[in-house]
Design a binder for these strands. Sequence first.
DNA 1: ATTCAAATTGACTGATTAGTCGGTCTAATT
DNA 2: AATTAGACCGACTAATCAGTCAATTTGAAT
Lengths: 186, 186
Amino acid sequence: MLDKRTKLMNAAKVLFSENGFYATPTAKIAKEAGVSNGILFHYFPTKADLIHAMYYDIKDRIFIYSVSQIYKEATLKESIYTLWLAAVEWNLENAEDFEFTLQFENSPYFSTEIEKKHKYVQMSIELAEQGRIQNVFKDINTLLLFQIMSRLVETNVKFLKHNPTFQNDVEFKNKLFEIAWDAIKK
Amino acid sequence: MLDKRTKLMNAAKVLFSENGFYATPTAKIAKEAGVSNGILFHYFPTKADLIHAMYYDIKDRIFIYSVSQIYKEATLKESIYTLWLAAVEWNLENAEDFEFTLQFENSPYFSTEIEKKHKYVQMSIELAEQGRIQNVFKDINTLLLFQIMSRLVETNVKFLKHNPTFQNDVEFKNKLFEIAWDAIKK
DNA sequence: ATTCAAATTGACTGATTAGTCGGTCTAATT
DNA sequence: AATTAGACCGACTAATCAGTCAATTTGAAT
């Protein structure tokens, strides 16, 4: 049995990804979660608090998953590939989280400052910094390199969602990665 | 003196880009536009109609601007560059339109079907199709190529907005274009 | 001058919604 | 057994908002 805080976040995830968070009343979230209206505001004083908590939760989980995938002896390109693939596959398998994140990051709730704070971003930026030092990447602002990769991941996930045939096509995914890699490599 | 329909769209543009369209009441739009509440619903039967009308209006304007920039004798790469630069500069100069479009395209109002319908997209896809025929671009779905370019433009505009120093740096912009070009070229 | 449709107004409403609150239940602590 | 603090409930409210409508103005056509 999940605790009610988690139940609420799960219910919100489903409803938010269906109708967006503005069109989803808090009462509906509580009902879907099978808990009382009041308890929602007990755990999340405002609706915005719930939304932010969900965002950080998602980013935490994708971070943990990504880190678990990389291995020590990998080359830089291999590490980038692993991270790229981890991000693509995680977002494909967690479609609701993906939808939610997209909406959140393009809403007035979000600022680049929020993004920079997260360990996931920091880890990626460190990797990008390595690439620049090793003279493998283009000589461009590191944060920008990261954002380019992130955006390409988004585009790829969207495409794969609309074209499920390719979802298990390793060769095709390699092609997609080459696009991203060509973009950032020198 | 602008007609009230245009006044309403201008006012909505400002308010939407500041607070998003869910947090912007129709009454506030009418007030900002200096017209009555009722006339808004005379021109736009629902709030969603207003939002859609604004989206198409923006896409029309960016299309007209982009087309005016390309010239006949240009090579394929030159044409792509011209379109890329037109998009980047137009979005930089029309920051509110840019914000609005971003929000809209990542909201439940939007679907890929809407996007495909627009002449702007069609023109770009034709260009991408040419590139594939001439064996210049990677052998990948044309719509995907277009979406990759669009996303990179977005990323570039966001970066230039946060780093105004580079906004008039032609050399830097060329670097940005090379990223996009390397991504799609064979 | 008269007509008439379209433009325009702004007060109004019905529905919705985030958040509150008084009170109950549970379980660990003393 | 008494105390207490946090979990939990659900009815309630104050505010907000999209959309309506009856009435007035405008301006072009007859």
